[in-house]
Design a protein around this nucleic acid. Sequence first.
DNA 1: CTGTTAGCGCCTTCAA
DNA 2: TTGAAGGCGCTAACAG
Lengths: 350, 350
Amino acid sequence: MTETGIGTSRSTPATLHDVAREAGVSLATASRSLNGSTRKVNDEYRKRVLDAAARLDYSPNLSAQAVARGTTTTVALLVADIADPYFSSIAAGVVAEADHERLIVTMAATERDPERELELVRTLRGQRPRVMILAGSRPTSDPTEGALGEELAAYERSGGRVVLISRNEFDFRTVIVENTAGAEALARELVGIGYRRFAVITGGEGLRTAADRVEGFRAGLAAAGGTLDDEHVVRAAFTRDGGYDGMRQLIESGLDGIELVFAANDVMAVGALSAVRDAGLTPGTDVAVAGFDDIPTVRDVTPALTTVRVPLEELGRRALRLALGDESASSEGAVRTEVVLRESTPGITR
Amino acid sequence: MTETGIGTSRSTPATLHDVAREAGVSLATASRSLNGSTRKVNDEYRKRVLDAAARLDYSPNLSAQAVARGTTTTVALLVADIADPYFSSIAAGVVAEADHERLIVTMAATERDPERELELVRTLRGQRPRVMILAGSRPTSDPTEGALGEELAAYERSGGRVVLISRNEFDFRTVIVENTAGAEALARELVGIGYRRFAVITGGEGLRTAADRVEGFRAGLAAAGGTLDDEHVVRAAFTRDGGYDGMRQLIESGLDGIELVFAANDVMAVGALSAVRDAGLTPGTDVAVAGFDDIPTVRDVTPALTTVRVPLEELGRRALRLALGDESASSEGAVRTEVVLRESTPGITR
DNA sequence: CTGTTAGCGCCTTCAA
DNA sequence: TTGAAGGCGCTAACAG
């Protein structure tokens, strides 16, 4: 009954030992035929081992391999919020590239809580991942800032590779996104099509990505001749609801002649569009809206959203390649962005 | 120079052995103070160990623990496409619940390729995850169907727990979604507000989820008095672009008196809305559209989409709880859905 | 309560 | 080429 090895109800996975015995060879030979880098096994033996493995439904224990080899095939990915299209697109890129390299991805969500992030990094470190990728910036002035840096540094000292995506807080390898330049280009184009009076909805205090985008936008306006009063810069959560609230605030303040509202990311911009509509106004016509990222959904909202395209999946891919020491990934410089004008900013004829 | 243990540039992580030596205690004591379940360590020793660990920046090697304990703290999650809001929402739920249970999630994407899925299950099995969660159904008639089932069965025999989300192909624990009932209720309500002539955009041949929804919709129409001709059921990819193409086909065929198009999921429905608009028609007015899932973005498209709400994050949470043997999760029955009428189906007065 | 000592499953010298 | 044996980092009896 236990003879066949198929469908038996053993409750513990077959071990390499079992396979070796079943094949009538030594543990070493079994190991070599199943994994060994340089093939140096008699074909006859090899076949016997492979057969035995199939018969016993053998699956190599990755943990054991990791312990023995002193290295894993794991990549750790930390994002703020998995359901956010910005992060899920990045994650898709990381996973795709990891799969390509036959690596396994473990994923965790910080939920934008710095302490949580630190805790997660600590836990994930235990996995001895080859690479650790962090996406989603945290407040610049944060008490746990130093601790995180220390933790990551320690991880690197012990052989790991840290890669940050679009956050320039630390001194680690980073996939840099042209946040400032992209926003500046957007501002110029918007002024170019007639807009003059702007407002901005940005993220919480000190969010680097948001700050860079706003700064770039400001610079662009300054150069091209648009105006952005300080009281027209509102802070809100870096989420869809944050964008909604921010826009509602602006509208409640009377809009004050504002022609276009720039939200620091698309998720917020989409929320802003809905706020405009819920206020009985027509987005695009009564007030124009622009975002940043070009997440998939923005071409399906109405009016389609003007934004700055960031190749999100590519960001994820690049992050992993960078961590793995891919020459090209590091030499490519900042990730290019591109202004995409759509119907949410139809332009103004003056 | 190496004395302090801080910031030294050793290239290999501190081991429990190092900590024990540094603290002047035995390996076992170190292990017990750092991890041991039942606290049975002299406070003095305990403190010394903790200090030493901190000084050496010790991080327990999870692989080694897994080997020694014979069990991991890993959960494996397989989805079709991480960037798809349906799956990323589910993933967010799984990750949240896993975090709650102090479990680590490894994630992979099948990209809707059955062979890939099989391959991934094989690889992931090597991790000896406590749980394996599969979301996203595959074609019902698939050559690798049997192999997948065998692989999963083998995994369960060796102590793992498989949970399927909304796919009733196999005989494993499953988080069942009221796909049929939900679609049926939707159909009834739509007929209730005046619609009579329907069309459907569904997924590829044999996709279970899609098939169930269409079937339910049909049943609802039959009961309430709506009509759905076979030539008005179009198949397309289960994606945004699929929905777009499907709707375009319908429009090109002249719409033929169709008043409302039901897309088998929201992502497709959103694409369909854009197709309507691109054809110069007004969704909601010229042709109504309804979807299924209630992904976050559908309340921000215009007109806001009528759909059947599925608590996606909850699906992920339930899946994990079910796998972990949570009583309540298994006794709760199918996950409830709820029809949500919005502006994309304003109703018809006859 | 603490330390000693086998393993856990696998890899990898080292001889044969 | 093959096999025997030690070791990877950690846990869990088992004595003391």
